[in-house]
């Protein structure tokens, strides 16, 4: 509970910081106008949003930490699955890669744009972004950067794993997006390597 209150104060400080930045930009008449408006909006939202955070009883939607060593890191091409939590997109020829956040990539044949075909799902836990060059997929797995040979989708070969290169110092202690309840981090369970949206129980933290 104490942690959460500190987090709220942190948010307030950020607001003040934003206002100071705005005040610095005296050069542009329009920006000054925007600043004034922003300050007004900011103050209102400050009090409304952060004055009265209440924590719901029972099940609710929120972020849940993912701890290292609890995840299946294998990369497997599987049957299609519904698009549930769409993330980033990448176009490679007429193939669309659609990220299912923290789960993997939907592979979609878009040769006929009036009838795109879902081909299957490349399971890569922790994936949130990707790019492709010459049949090599570059993708993250939580904080690791992977190079994966996908020239034969049923015989995927890991070329390289750069461990932890995407880690942000202390950045995993709160969810990637603000405005959500989250399951408080329990460091006795290990290092947090990422976050997922899930049904959580009696959350006591908010960011």
């Amino acid at each position: 509970m104490q942690r959460c209150c500190e987090k709220l104060r942190y948010s307030r400080t950020l607001n003040n910081h934003t206002h100071r930045n705005l005040a610095d930009m005296k050069g542009y008449k329009t920006l000054v106008l925007f600043s004034l408006l922003a300050i007004l909006l900011g103050l209102t939202s400050c009090f409304e949003t952060f004055g009265e955070v209440t924590f719901p009883e029972g099940e609710t939607n929120g972020y849940k930490p993912i701890y290292a060593n609890s995840e299946d890191l294998s990369i497997v091409f599987e049957a299609t699955r519904p698009v549930d939590n769409a993330g980033k997109i990448y176009l490679y020829g007429d193939l669309i890669l659609l990220n299912e956040r923290f789960k993997g990539l939907h592979l979609i044949d878009n040769q006929d744009p009036s009838n795109p075909q879902n081909l299957g799902f490349l399971r890569i836990s922790g994936a949130t972004d990707m790019a492709v060059r010459n049949q090599v997929l570059y993708v993250n797995q939580y904080e690791d950067l992977l190079a994966v040979d996908v020239s034969d989708i049923n015989n995927i070969r890991l070329i390289a794993r750069e461990e932890k290169v995407l880690a942000i110092d202390g950045g995993n202690q709160v969810p990637p997006v603000s405005g959500f309840y989250f399951e408080c981090v329990d460091l006795s369970k290990g290092t947090v390597i990422g976050w997922e949206m899930a049904t959580i129980n009696n959350p006591k933290c908010f960011y």
């Binding site: 980033k88 490679y92 020829g93 890669l97 990707m130 790019a131 060059r133 049949q135 570059y138 020239s151």
Partner: peptide, 27 residues
């Protein structure tokens, strides 16, 4: 092999945090 028949580089959306160009990967 949905990816197997293709070569070269692709295109990301404007929210991309990964970029591949001719010979480089930027992350």
């Amino acid at each position: 092999n949905p990816i197997g028949g293709l070569s070269g580089t692709g295109t990301g959306g404007s929210l991309a945090s990964f970029l591949v160009t001719n010979n480089n990967l930027y992350v």
